[in-house]
Amino acid sequence: MTAVLEAQGLAKRYGHTWALRDCSFSLPGGHVVALVGPNGAGKSTLLHIAVGLTQPTAGAISVLGNPAPSDPESLARIGFVAQSAPLYRTFSVADMLHLGRAMNPRWDDAYARGRLARLGIPADRRMSKLSGGQQAQVALSLALAKRPELLLLDEPVADLDPLARHDFMGELMAAVAEHGISVVLSSHAIAELERACDYLVVMGAGKVKVAGEVAALVEEHLLLTGPVSTAADTADSRTVVRQSLAGRQATLVVRGPSRRALPPGWRERRLSLEELILAYLREPEASALPGPQELILTAETGR
């Protein structure tokens, strides 16, 4: 399958801050991609560039093979739900669907109406009278009824309570499975991502730090624990994502295999997706290519 989202040297600067910097990646289709990263990592900026809301300062992006994301032809193939699901507050549900019908050539009105009726959202209710979860569902219905090939969701569950989150993700997964849509969604709700996503992109400081299929990433990463005295030795032959020292015990998150066996006293185990994401989030500089100099210093003095 071809790439749904491809970026080359993408950069965006707001004043003196770089929201994205030299960002290059290629996301294959047919996945539910989780885009994670701390606030300000550039997730929203990236998604906004992909739908033409923001112009990149430098670099190029192609969305479903189209290099001009603000094209109506490109937008017709994308369903986008912006952060906190913006809707016209005075519009009724029926009005919102009217808007979708009027502005999209591939609009599937029966699907949108059926979906909202099934969710028990009355057609004459105003947006301002709907709960947060219902508003998110209306926004998702608008995006899905465009019959998109790619769905881009910016923090779709951030404002929702745990139950609404669970329901929203369930509905999303059902729709994705039914129509075979590729999805890229940014989120902080790691637990929900673990359930829904099969591809992970971790962003930090305007760059993609790690990207890959969840199964492969979980397979590649190991959590090593052992005595501080041999931590530097252990780290030396491995690609360290993150290291931490607590008393006499050192903990390393490493990526990829090592030619050398673990020193005595060391144990290894696999990480959950959540642990993996947290390891990358906690280490802003990690991109799975660091040298362990800092560790050596701390290990020598840290007793």
Binding site: P72, L75, P105
Partner: peptide, 9 residues
């Protein structure tokens, strides 16, 4: 963000 991401320029 809603209006400008429908299929219309």
């Amino acid at each position: 963000r809603l209006a400008w991401t429908q299929s219309i320029s």
